[in-house]
Design a protein around this nucleic acid. Structure first.
Lengths: 160, 160
DNA sequence: TTTGGTGCAAACAATTTGCACTATA
DNA sequence: TATAGTGCAAATTGTTTGCACCAAA
């Protein structure tokens, strides 16, 4: 238990650190500035595990640094997306949610229609097949978006 | 040439007719009314082939019936979605586009990042694999959304 | 000390809603 | 003729932007 908790924390810390490093590099390469606000926003974003809206992230950030404005949350996330370090997603709702994007890593999503929990997965066979379909239609495949919706079987999933 | 054009027209007419029938049934079952506006909106929607936003559909409809308001376009489309006869989609943009949903029919999309053209396809192998993934994670799969993005090779696709 | 970032409020864009009126059932 | 639908304008929601001030580089 303690071990698991500790492990999680450490890996989250590492994740934050490496993301911040990558972001700082991106910024300095184009004479942009790394600010205290950006640090808090990104840190809380990573800690949360992602998949949250700008508004939700804003609420979390405000608790840590009450002076941060919603506009800065939007600006920081957009900047992260520009840097290729985050991705915008639209699941069930119209509002955008964001997730960290580690270069090289890519995954798809499984969303529970009852509890709204979002799971991630990777599947080689599906990707191969997608490539075949695209090629068959004369398409040079650049990216894809696959979302599976269903009912999960977690014991605490409400029958909503 | 003539034959092809005629065929298309006929099938579009049939499509409109059967969609309107299904919609009328839906409406009368719950004491809702089938109005002249709804008829024009849905007819133009089908004729257009779908994949357009409320605003775009509104522009088309206004040419046929200048009295129709944007709100009615939204209300009609939403009502069609409620009836299960249309589906909302979000591709590259934030604005919703809609498409006709024929019960039983389902397909995925291939979108050209250069010319924005939307192609539809179906692939059994991908669907099978999706089912396996979901089952493997203890999910009862209800629906899915797959979008492939790439570059098409149509001669008239602009290098945008 | 230059210039990009910030918070705030105003602006925007997409969509929904309240209301007096109209048309379908 | 009762009630759902309509057009219009106002309201809402999510997101972006202009501006005077602040803080990284």
């Amino acid at each position: 238990m303690v071990k698991k908790g500790k492990k999680r924390e450490e890996s989250s810390d590492l994740e934050i650190e490496s993301l911040l490093e990558a972001y700082k590099t991106f910024l300095s390469e184009r004479q942009l500035k790394f600010t205290e606000q950006r640090k808090v926003i990104i840190t809380e974003f990573v800690k949360s595990g992602g998949h949250l809206s700008a508004e939700d992230l804003f609420r979390i950030v405000k608790k840590k640094a009450s002076n941060v404005g919603l506009a800065s949350v939007y600006r920081t996330i957009n900047s992260l997306v520009d840097a290729g370090l985050a991705e915008e997603r639209h699941f069930l709702d119209k509002t955008s949610v964001y997730e960290i994007h580690k270069p090289g890593d890519h995954h798809d999503h499984l969303i529970c229609l009852k509890c709204k929990k979002i799971f991630e997965f990777e599947n080689e066979a599906i990707e191969d097949q997608q490539k075949k379909v695209a090629e068959g239609l004369g398409f040079a495949l650049k990216k894809h978006k696959l979302e599976l919706y269903g009912w999960c079987q977690r014991s605490n999933c409400p029958n909503y």
